[in-house]
Computed example of a mutant assay.
Amino acid sequence: MLGAFRPARSMELLQRELAERFGCRFVFVLSTGRAAMVVLLRALQAVSEAARYQVIVPAYTCYSVPSSIVKAGLQVRVVDIDPHTLDYDYDRLERCDLSRVLAIVSANLYGLPNDLQRLARIATGAGAHLLDDAAQAMGARLNGRNCGTFGTAGIYSLDKGKVITTMNGGIIVTDDDRVAAAVARQVQHLDRPTTAHTAAEIGKLLAYSLLLDPSRYWLPARMPFLGLGETHYTVAYPVELYPAVMGGLARQLLRQLQRYNGARRANGFFYRQALYDVPGIRLITEQPGSDPIYLRFPLLVEDPLERERLLARLRAGGLGGSSSYPSSIVDIADLRGWLGGIDDDASGGRWVAERMLTLPTHPLVTAEDRRTTVTIIKKSMGRPV
């Protein structure tokens, strides 16, 4: 394993290369993306007014976001989304009382940048922070600037299913001296995962790498220990440092980021061109000036029952379609009691949760895989092929 013989040096080089890649002065690497968000939220509270304890999240996003907020001891505030963009409904966001809001969290779902400049203006104007969550958008840009670098601080993820993965890993980036100092005070007391845990994660990583081939998409159901394709809300996870022996591997993958994202973009562009006029299918409107990386390609099937039929056909063909997150954030049962407010009925987030379908875009997806996927979708939706 690269970096195993000089782990401290390997981690130092990883932080330096991340700083250079994303143009940030301070970089910290944690055990998971969730752990990174917990540490960052605690740091933001440490440098902010004590009365600010709410964190705004979009009504449709990854469950790890509200779980990190709760684990940090803060309150989740939900604002609805615009189903056309998967970004916030800005009319609603701008009407919110932000006087108790510590941070607004971006989503950049599936590698599609949010309107990050607008979000930063709203947060700054309210005396809050923008936490730019680029866990799914490492390498995506808006107007030439990296997602994850807008606002006070940002997050990237090396967890499974992300742009590059060492199975687990979370990255905090910031240019803010006070926030960096607050993060540093926290991480100096954290442990690293045990050797046994790290060895188990390396084994999972080897298994995961084999499953990226579309011909093996059926295997995860027989390997539940990997947790692939599962979405659970939980706060039962450790907040630790990144295993230093993985630093060399992370550096090698980081150097492949542009190549991997190039393949994802090509696959995403193909789907966008092939599916833009299929009846019953709605594509996501991208922000002007954005350069998405398509972690997966998202589309909305207007009839939820047809979405389920289409997913079954894609899975039967071994093509890896996914419904993504099963519900809006407001409908997570274990989150009740931690919600500091819900924007209306979160109808946009709920509408998307019932209709979202995502397609794989990683570099092992072939031209034949793409064509077969499009053929299945068009036939299912009654469109001539």
Rank of each mutant, 00 (worst) to 15 (best):
G170H: 01
R185T: 13
R296Q: 09
I376V: 13
Q136H: 11
L339E: 15
G289K: 11
R6E: 15
G318S: 11
L130F: 00
S67E: 08
D97C: 12
A107P: 05
V183F: 11
R100T: 15
I342P: 01
G321I: 11
Q15W: 07
C96P: 02
V239S: 06
R9T: 12
I104L: 12
R355V: 07
P360T: 02
Y294P: 00
L226N: 15
A35C: 02
E308D: 10
P66D: 12
V47Q: 07
P58H: 01
V235P: 00
N108V: 00
R6L: 15
A184C: 08
R296G: 02
R222S: 15
I122V: 14
V47S: 01
V55S: 08
T231W: 11
S106T: 03
G169C: 09
V301L: 06
M246W: 09
R77I: 05
K160P: 07
P292C: 11
G348K: 03
E94H: 05
A8W: 10
Q256E: 13
G111K: 02
R265S: 00
T152N: 02
L98A: 09
R216M: 04
Y60G: 05
Q252A: 15
A244I: 00
A107K: 07
V385E: 14
G33H: 04
Y53K: 15
F28Y: 08
Q45D: 12
E286F: 10
R21F: 02
L131Y: 06
M37Q: 14
A200D: 06
H362G: 09
I69H: 12
